[in-house]
Amino acid sequence: MESEICLWRHDGSVEVVHRGTGRIEAPNWCADGSLLVNAEGRLWRLAPGADRLTPVETGFATQLNNDHVPSPDGQVIAISDKAETGASCIYLVPAAGGAPHRLTAQLPSWMHGWSPDGRRVVYAGARDGGPVGIYLAEVETGDETCVTAGFDHADGPDFSADGRWIWFNGERDGAVDIWRIRPDGTTPERMTDGPGVDWFPHPSPDGRHVVHLRYPPGTQGHPADLDVALWLLPQAGGEGREIVRFRGGQGSLNVPCWAPDSSSFAFVRYPA
């Protein structure tokens, strides 16, 4: 199969910055302009203008899934890997690569975002046979708090740049919509309400927009290789609009993906 790493810009244009064989997933945009992606259970970097991916050393962590995010200060990368534990666990590795340091004690945990001050991570987790929910952990101590309740499934969390909201996709009564909630677990607000199945919301750094993935009505979970669309919402609330349609899904937009100046974001599509 073929993967295309793409950049969407506010004029509606889409630029393909890398084409590769195999499944490449989940681009993060780093402060230096490089992109981090997942492929073959490893972490890779695409430097600006480069035509090849270069590996990022992650020690024993060689069964990464596509949940990885650089810290706000750019010093470390949080990754999700199961090589040591058998289920997804969150680790921190130096941004230049190196040995993983375990962060989450409980499993499974899938990394999704950082608080703007870098003191906490927000992630999806399943505990004691319960549904997948949204959790916060202190980076210094690993102490964990669940911030969602009353959802059949909650996933894909990402902080707003001001730290006041956690955006996520939440399922209730068979409907999967975009929600936001305060970091203390109060004031949940539904931000989409339609027949589509909405996943992976990512607020822009300038506080204006949220991009998210929309699956066709009736889609179960977040599968790969479907006809999907990206939608853009105002962060303050209101009607969204479709901005691009393509073949993708799982792997296309799992992690924070905006450029630091909010001029564009990265996603992956998979041509048939």
Rank of each mutant, 00 (worst) to 15 (best):
K82T: 08
V122P: 06
D152S: 09
G156N: 14
G207K: 09
G221S: 15
S13E: 08
A224R: 10
A105Y: 06
S88Q: 14
T104W: 08
D143H: 01
D206S: 14
P205R: 05
Q106K: 02
S262Y: 12
P234H: 12
K82Q: 04
G12V: 08
G86A: 02
D206V: 13
L64Y: 08
G248V: 02
R241K: 13
C89H: 05
F159G: 12
A105F: 07
D177L: 13
E84M: 07
R23V: 15
D158L: 11
R182M: 15
S34H: 09
P100I: 01
A259V: 12
N169K: 15
E4M: 00
F159R: 10
Y215E: 05
P234Q: 10
C257S: 14
C89W: 02
R180L: 15
E57Q: 12
T192A: 07
L230F: 02
L53Q: 04
P188Y: 00
G129Y: 02
P201N: 03
R241W: 03
K82V: 10
Y270H: 09
W167K: 12
V228Q: 03
A39D: 05
P205W: 13
D32F: 05
H209P: 02
V16K: 01
I243F: 02
T192P: 02
A124Q: 09
H202F: 06
R164E: 14
L226T: 08
A272S: 15
P157R: 10
H112W: 06
R247C: 05
V139C: 00
L35H: 11
P157D: 09
E40H: 13
Q63D: 10
P271A: 01
G133T: 08
T54A: 07
W44R: 03
Y91M: 03
A99R: 13
L46I: 00
W167E: 13
T141H: 04
P27H: 06
A26W: 01
A31E: 13
P216S: 10
C146F: 01
P94W: 04
A61Y: 01
V76N: 05
A31Y: 01
R245H: 12
P260S: 14
Q75F: 13
V93S: 11
C146Q: 06
G41N: 15
D173I: 13
R269P: 10
E239I: 07
F200N: 14
P48V: 10
Y135Q: 04
A39T: 15
N254F: 12
S109F: 07
S3R: 01
T148Y: 00
I77D: 03
L7I: 04
D184C: 12
D162V: 05
P70F: 02
D173W: 04
P183E: 12
F60G: 09
D128H: 08
G142T: 00
Y91N: 07
Y123D: 14
A95S: 14
P195M: 04
D117G: 05
